[in-house]
Amino acid sequence: MEKENTKVSSRRDFFKKSGAIAGGLLLVSMLDPLKQIKALAGEKPKGKGAWYGIGVDLEKCIGCGSCAKACKTENNVPKEPFFFRSWVEQYSVTANGVVKVQSPNGGVDGFKQPVLDKEIEKSFFIPKSCNHCAKSPCEQVCPVGATFISPDGVVLVDETYCIGCGYCVQACPYACRYLHPVKHTADKCTLCYHRIKKGLAPACITVCPTGAKIYGDLNDKNSDLVKFIKEHNCTVLKPHLNTKPKFFYNALKEEAE
């Protein structure tokens, strides 16, 4: 009997100790969630620092595909023709309103000179990439917080943390995400975050031969982008979805909206 008693009491001791440890840890980690809540409560430095966006003058875009090609090089995007961070589409509209969209290999190899088709009334190129939405649906649906909006308004992916569920790929109305076949994580345009933070332009903008594409800080009244938006009649893609995209197009035709 005695033996059993000591056993019980020592077990109780153990429980007490572990209980104390647990309590201590609970207190320590109570600080963690508070930190998260604080961050959620709106300490996002929207008004203070940079708030990046992109602009494209479609009148100047010649559909050479340099941006799409440079993006693949700069960001090690897989060569297969269905992985793109940045790509170019050509819209062709016939007289009776039929819209045809082409994007052979995302425009990486350029567009072949089309055979003259008298049916086609107008045609235009649209370079596309992540719109870096201020209310991005991809960030909203990510189950683990691997996709986020950086303090300067760039939508990024935490590759080391992404589980690759692909939910963000469905959620993106602009089809700018894909699952990386090697990393097995979601992958997308980062606005060349590694370049802009060092003061360089993103690769696509660096190589654009006509200067059709620009980027800039929307909080800086003197930035190229803010001037561009003021001077041109800019629209965004799918404005009715209210995702607040920050990719501004000048002279966007109604067929593409």
């Binding site: 963690d32 969630p33 930190k35 998260q36 961050a39 959620l40 996002k44 440079a70 090089t73 700069e74 960001n75 917080g145 691997a146 996709t147 986020f148 909006i149 950086s150 303090p151 990024l156 935490d158 590759e159 080391t160 943390y161 980062t190 060349c192 975050y193 590694h194 370049r195 933070k197 060092k198 360089l200 690769a203 660096t206 190589v207």
Partner: peptide, 22 residues
Amino acid sequence: FGDLGHYRADALQYNIDHEKKF
């Protein structure tokens, strides 16, 4: 995690550390 929002704040630096080509 949670320093700046519901994500790993280190991920910002991770993205910045990407090698530039152009």
